[in-house]
Design a protein around this nucleic acid. Structure first.
Lengths: 212, 212
DNA sequence: TAATATACGGAGCAGTCGTTCCGTATACGT
DNA sequence: ACGTATACGGAACGACTGCTCCGTATATTA
């Protein structure tokens, strides 16, 4: 079991979780330290959840962020709300990734590249999504809007690939997503080397090609 | 199933992974009601875990079985041991299923049929396997022997299919299993109609065919 | 049927986790 | 520099869960 406590203050140029600044529309802006802590907590939670799963006690997240639990709870009134914040940013990042690929010249390559990158992202933080179900949160309901947005993007990629004749026209976009997500689950559970995951995704993609 | 069990298993160490009746080799046979309860608990646990996940309190399993928690704990000294017993029976059933297919005439069909059936089984009780990781049990270590046995069977099916030229020769058996298991995870998480699952598995199988 | 080993039931114990509360510390406006 | 609104820290609370203990019930044997 990896100990995630302590540490922090690395200030690496990693995730930059903005997406949803805790803006105060009608009130004063947040105090500087509060804003700093808000981001520290978000970053710590992302790391800890990805590493040890969402079952880790809140205290661990707080310790990793270098704040007390009280502080954590003022920023996120519930453990669930912490999940939500993280999932939301992750989804919006995925939408951005998909957007980058819809303009690529080769439709088949675009879909393949996106799926591989999608798989990589999903595999890295799979524990988060996986365990959300366990907590009773219905991801599909709670994040219906951003999920629909993401699916619309993927659908675009799929349609372009179908029109180009590089994949069969009798598969649903949702099936493809399911397959890739499932592949991540299976691959990521233990030693998940990138090459292995890509190989698995490639098999799925091969299965999508039209029958010769 | 090669039984390597040496002496008694009541001491710690090797878990008594035995799918069959809790026989008492050197002592009197179990009392009739005890045997009945043993099976009732096993059956109840299987149902409850598959339905609500392994996070359900033990009390629920006991209630479902119609026994008190004390009784449950005399039969299975630990919640983990309950998981183990169930997983062990499931694995040995899968081995039997695989055995039935290795003698089928058409190698390609045999592999396909087995994978579809495998997927169906795995999807039904996916919560169990999925959540075992969450509890800190390392399935691969704890069930190394029966898992190896199962993999040997699948390997046989795969080799026969490769020799017959119906699937590519550059895929590992383990990859195939991973893909199918992953597919179950993804498909089962919500409305998992059998037809949908079969369709997904078929796509994976299509991806395993040799390039035209 | 009586004696006894065996098994049962469920209240209760110990530990964990999410969350709250409030005294203290700090940032910000003046 | 000072006063105040704002935010912080972490001890403590309650709910929950895995597991134990022991008085009671039942199967088995003679």
């Amino acid at each position: 079991m990896t100990d995630v406590r302590a540490g922090s203050s690395d200030a690496s140029g990693a995730p930059s979780i903005d997406a949803s600044e805790p803006a105060s529309p009608d009130s004063r802006p947040m105090r500087a330290d509060a804003l700093r802590n808000h981001e520290k907590i978000l970053r710590a939670a992302e790391e800890v959840f990805a590493l040890d799963g969402v079952m880790v006690p809140i205290d661990v997240v707080a310790a990793r962020a270098g704040v007390g639990v009280g502080t954590l709870y003022r920023h996120f009134p519930t453990k669930e709300s912490l999940y939500e914040a993280i999932v939301a940013t992750r989804l919006s990042r995925l939408v951005a990734t998909a957007d980058a690929f819809v303009t690529a010249p080769d439709p088949g390559e675009a879909l393949g590249d996106f799926l591989r990158e999608f798989a990589q992202t999903a595999a890295d933080k799979q524990d988060l999504f996986e365990a959300l179900g366990q907590t009773g949160i219905d991801v599909k309901t709670r994040f219906a809007e951003p999920l629909a947005e993401l699916m619309a993007r993927v659908d675009l990629l799929v349609q372009r690939a179908i029109d180009a004749g590089v994949i069969r026209d009798d598969v649903e976009t949702e099936d493809i997503v399911r397959l890739v997500v499932g592949t991540c689950h299976a691959a990521g559970h233990r030693g998940a080397d990138d090459a292995g995951l890509a190989r698995l995704v490639n098999i799925v993609i091969a299965g999508l090609r039209p029958r010769a």
